[in-house]
């Protein structure tokens, strides 16, 4: 019996990013170390990480797709389902907790629950407690904020008055 023909997954990375991926891989003594950087690269380009993208990363690194998924699924920054083009991460750990973090999160969560452009998530300490309550929009810091000021801020990103980073936090 002949084995079934291997189906080539559709390509995800652009030519430029494929070249970038090869440069990244060359930085490491062992290519598997490039899993996180390549997943960031995918997310910079696509805004999330699809199964096809994980297959492509696996092929580039000589891994099984399941190995890439295993690593990818451990880390909170990697989104395996599509998210809004703006990811708003609100800290509710203790220094923000006692300074209005949960209220900020609730307000934004409610305000944007129906908005496909904006994904609001609750996150652990962002290491910026002197700005509590603090949030990030695509990993750009803002704080301290009231819910009202935070909404204006997100609106500024939506309208283009502020230029967001990518969903992985790189310069767009």
């Amino acid at each position: 019996m002949t084995p079934p023909e291997r189906v080539q997954p559709p390509r995800v990375l652009t030519d430029d990013n494929l070249a970038k991926a090869r440069e990244i891989i060359a930085l490491y003594p062992h290519s598997k170390s490039a899993v996180l950087p390549l997943l960031h690269l995918v997310q910079d380009q696509e805004g999330w990480i699809s199964d096809d993208a994980m297959r492509e990363v696996a092929a580039l690194l000589g891994l099984q797709p399941a190995q890439v998924l295993g690593t990818c699924s451990f880390y909170t920054m990697f989104k395996r389902d599509p998210v809004g083009r703006l990811v708003v991460s609100v800290c509710t750990n203790v220094s923000c907790y006692v300074n209005g973090g949960p209220e900020l999160y609730d307000a934004l969560q409610q305000r944007y629950s129906e908005d496909a452009d904006v994904t609001v998530e609750e996150v652990e300490c962002l290491a910026a407690c002197d700005q509590a309550p603090v949030l990030q929009v695509n990993y750009e810091y803002h704080g301290p904020l009231t819910p009202e000021v935070a909404e204006d801020l997100v609106e500024d990103y939506k309208s283009g008055r502020l230029t967001p980073r990518t969903v992985s936090g790189s310069q767009g």
């Binding site: 930085l27 490491y28 062992h30 598997k32 170390s33 490039a34 899993v35 996180l36 950087p37 997943l39 960031h40 690194l61 295993g70 690593t71 451990f74 880390y75 909170t76 920054m77 990697f78 652990e124």
Partner: peptide, 25 residues
């Protein structure tokens, strides 16, 4: 080499960090 993590407190433990740097959980 500058290497970005991807959101996991436990990667701050020195052996967790090395695992992460090797492309693992």
């Amino acid at each position: 080499v500058l290497h970005r993590g991807a959101g996991a407190y436990i990667a701050g433990d020195e052996t967790g960090l090395m695992e992460s740097l090797e492309g693992e959980r």
